[in-house]
Design a protein around this nucleic acid. Structure first.
Lengths: 160, 160
DNA sequence: ATTAATGCAAACGGTTTGCACTACT
DNA sequence: AGTAGTGCAAACCGTTTGCATTAAT
């Protein structure tokens, strides 16, 4: 809540202008705006929602600019995209560690898959199928504890 | 070659006309066509591809009819849809058993997740997060044995 | 002065919808 | 006859593209 405004990009983002210029790319107000939005995101967000949030700060935001900037940021390794449970582009912000995600079909909450569960899955699949799991692309759909409790009889597996 | 009633729909599908009529729904050439295509599918297929295959048999096929019929078949429990790794609607044909899927980002092959691997994952997530996995919605992206061998150095996780 | 990046508008692809017409029951 | 289903066309939504213009270097 403390740092913001022109001089103060939050930590992992403060080097972005330099990263861009080192590659002959440019630091623009539009890119700055998107990054300001990204600093408020923990975890993941859809492309469309990023566009909306940017528009919230600057109604003149153009979708294509956002998507193009996301492409650039992905090349810099600052975001990574995959496809979420509902089929939209979903961006992972600061994908420092490779991890999968749990998506609650009840409330939409997203959590990270813990190390050990990922390891169990990976090991089992490598053993039985020789399949190399890309954990960062794994999204497991189900019900979080709260939602599972709220609908004890509802057959999980038959969607909403 | 015994059955000639409906000109021989394969086993699980032979009762579909009756299933429909019992609900006041109708058996039409278009529905027959789609089901004929579905009998050739094992596993999964996207909506768009179903439309194309129907068009292969009858070029006058209209997309909306295919999608509407898929909705009906889903209500009958003959298909189930979710979203695949690339974000398209993906239909599971005859989802008799609940199982997840392995999607190879290299060659596009799809395989079923074996019982034991699914169990390992489910148990681990329930233990650590209290999360109830919906196995039928799980799609794990990675590399099948052949593709993993073909690109030994390529960091799985940075997919193309 | 370069040339990357933007704004705009139009296109895209898969899916959905509204409506008059067709055809299954 | 009654109404479920179809064909058609247009809308939809998130995303992408082409191109002339703007602005960061």
């Amino acid at each position: 809540m403390a740092a913001r405004q022109v001089a103060g990009l939050a930590e992992p983002w403060s080097g972005v202008p330099a990263m861009l210029r080192r590659r002959g790319l440019r630091w623009t107000p539009q890119r700055r705006l998107l990054i300001e939005v990204l600093t408020t995101i923990q975890g993941h967000i859809t492309g469309a929602e990023l566009v909306e949030r940017c528009r919230g700060l600057d109604p003149s935001t153009i979708p294509s600019t956002v998507y193009r900037t996301l492409d650039v940021l992905e090349e810099l390794g600052l975001v990574r995209h995959c496809h979420g449970a509902d089929g939209r582009e979903e961006y992972h912000v600061l994908p420092a560690d490779d991890h999968g995600h749990l998506y609650c079909g009840g409330c939409g909450a997203v959590a990270e898959i813990p190390e050990d569960a990922a390891a169990a899955l990976t090991a089992a699949l490598r053993a039985s199928h020789g399949f190399s799991v890309d954990v960062s692309h794994v999204t497991i759909v189900g019900r979080c504890p709260r939602c599972a409790r709220a609908e004890p009889e509802a057959e999980v597996g038959r969607g909403p």
